Simulated assay, not measured.
Amino acid sequence: MNKPQKFDIAVIGAGIAGLVCAQELQQMGYSVVVLEKSRGVGGRMATRRVSGSRADHGVRYLEPRGKFWQQLIDNQKIKKNNIDTKPIIQLWTDKTYELIHPQELLLPTTKNCYIAPQGMNSVGKFLAEGLDIWFSRRVQTIQQLAEKNWYLTLEITNDAATEKPTEVMAKAVVLAIPAPQALAILEKPIAEIQPEFLEHLRLVEYDPCITVMAGYSQALQENLPEWRAIAFSNDEYLDWVGLDSSKRQDASQPVFVIQSSAKFATTHLESPDLPPIGKKILEHTAQKLLPWLRDPEWLQVHRWRYAFCRQALAVSCLTTEIPLPLVGVGDWCGGDNIESAFTSGLSAAHWLRRKAEGKK
C-alpha cells in the first residue's frame, strides 16, 4: 500500500468554488491538492459533447451581478490558454423571455447573459490550469491524526485512474461540494467533527433538476425561433428552455437544452430509466413551443440532484477549527449562484491564510 501524500491543504471538489480556492491558496505559496470524484472540472459549469455538437447541460449562462464578474467581463481577463486574444466569456444575448402560465403570455426581459462559446466547462478548465487535481477520487472518510493532520481515504471511481495514492494527509480541508455530500462524509463516526458545523450543513436545501439535451436535423436551421432562452412560470414540467446551438458560431445542427421544474424532477429523480422521462419533457416542450421539437435526431438526459440551492447559509464560507481547520464553500454559502461560489472560494482561502498566520 502506498504511503499517503502530504499537503498543506486538500480541496474536495473541482467545481468553481473549489478551483478558485485552490488557485488562491497555491498563489499564496501553499501546497494544494484537489480531489475530484469525476473525470472533469467545473462542476455544474458542465458541457457535454454529443454527435459533434456541444450542449451546456448545467449552468445556463452568467450574469454580471457583482463587482467580480463585471470586472472579469469588462477587462476580458479570461483568455483561452492565456494566449488566445479571443475571450472565453462573451455576451450571448441581452434579452430573455418568460412564458407565464396559464395565460401563455411570452414576456421579454432585458438581461445581459454571458456564455462561453467553447462550452461553459471551458471556464473551469481555465481555472484548473496549474493545479494538482486527482480525478476519479471520491473521498470516503476523513479523520484527525495525532500529528495535527487530517487523514483522508479515497475511493477510485474509474478503474483506469490508478496513478495516484488512495490516502492523503493535509493540515486543512476545504469541502467544495454540495452540503449533503459533505454531510455524507462528515457524519461518519470516524470524522468527529464539531456538531455545530454539521448542524449548519443540515440547514442547506437544494432543488433537483432533470436536463434534456436534444439535437435536430440541420435542415431545421431555417425554422429556428428568434428567441434564445425562455423561462417558465408555474409550469408543472418546465423551468427553462434554451437554444444552446446559438452559443456556437460553428454549430453543425440545432441543439436545445431543456431544464425541468423542481417539482417534476423531484417526482422522477430516482427513476432508473431516464430517456423516457426526457421524452416526456420534450413532448411537453413541443406542445408549448415548437411541434417539431418532439422528433430529435439524438436525445440525452442528465439528472442534477443538487441543481439549485434553495436555502443557502448567510456566510461566505462555513468554518471551524475544531478539531482542525475545516471550511465549507460553494454557492450554498452567501447566495445561490456562480458568483457566490467564486466569492466563497476566495473567502475560504483568505480565512485559511489568516489561521495559518495565527490571526483572527
Rank of each mutant, 00 (worst) to 15 (best):
R303P: 02
R294T: 12
K80D: 06
L131Q: 02
A160I: 04
V173C: 10
A265C: 08
K37N: 07
E339S: 14
E24M: 03
F308E: 03
I115N: 09
L35F: 10
P325Y: 02
C309E: 00
P325F: 02
G52D: 06
L152N: 11
I89R: 05
R202M: 06
I9P: 05
D94E: 13
L318I: 02
Q287I: 05
A265T: 05
L346V: 03
D336W: 12
F308Q: 10
L198I: 15
L91I: 12
N81W: 12
P117V: 11
G119V: 13
D74A: 14
D8Q: 07
A179W: 14
V59K: 00
D84V: 15
G15W: 02
L274M: 11
Q253R: 09
A146P: 07
M120G: 05
R39T: 12
I142E: 07
W332E: 00
A116Q: 06
K247N: 03
E163V: 04
S31E: 09
D273M: 03
F197G: 01
M120V: 14
I277Y: 08
Q287E: 08
G18L: 05
P165M: 04
G345W: 03
Q76E: 13
G18P: 01
L324G: 08
D74C: 02
L220E: 00
F135L: 02
L106P: 03
Q140I: 15
A160W: 10
D250S: 11
L198F: 05
P64F: 09
L99K: 11
T211N: 02
S260I: 06
V301Y: 03
G335I: 01
M28Y: 11
V257W: 02
V32K: 04
N75Q: 13
P325W: 03
V168T: 08
T266K: 15
N234E: 09
N82E: 07
R202C: 07
T109A: 14
D74Q: 15
T153K: 06
D235S: 12
Q5C: 09
M120F: 05
L152G: 07
D8T: 10
K280C: 11
R54W: 10
C21H: 04
Q144I: 01
L106T: 06
E357D: 15
H200K: 13
N337L: 06
T110G: 13
R248I: 09
N112V: 12
Q76L: 10
A191M: 14
A349N: 06
M169K: 08
L62H: 04
L274V: 09
V168W: 01
N223V: 04
S38T: 15
L269I: 14
Q181Y: 05
K164D: 07
A314M: 11
I142Y: 10
N223D: 15
P272G: 01
A251K: 01
R60P: 00
I281V: 11
T343H: 11
Q311T: 14
W240A: 04
V257P: 01
Q181W: 09
K37M: 13
A191E: 04
Q26N: 08
L282H: 07
L107H: 07
A229M: 09
K188G: 03
G58P: 01
V41K: 00
A170R: 01
S217K: 07
E270K: 10
H268V: 04
V212E: 10
Q71C: 10
A262G: 05
E222H: 12
V204T: 00
I133T: 09
A262C: 08
Q27Y: 03
E36H: 01
Q181M: 14
P325C: 07
P296T: 06
Q71R: 15
E192F: 08
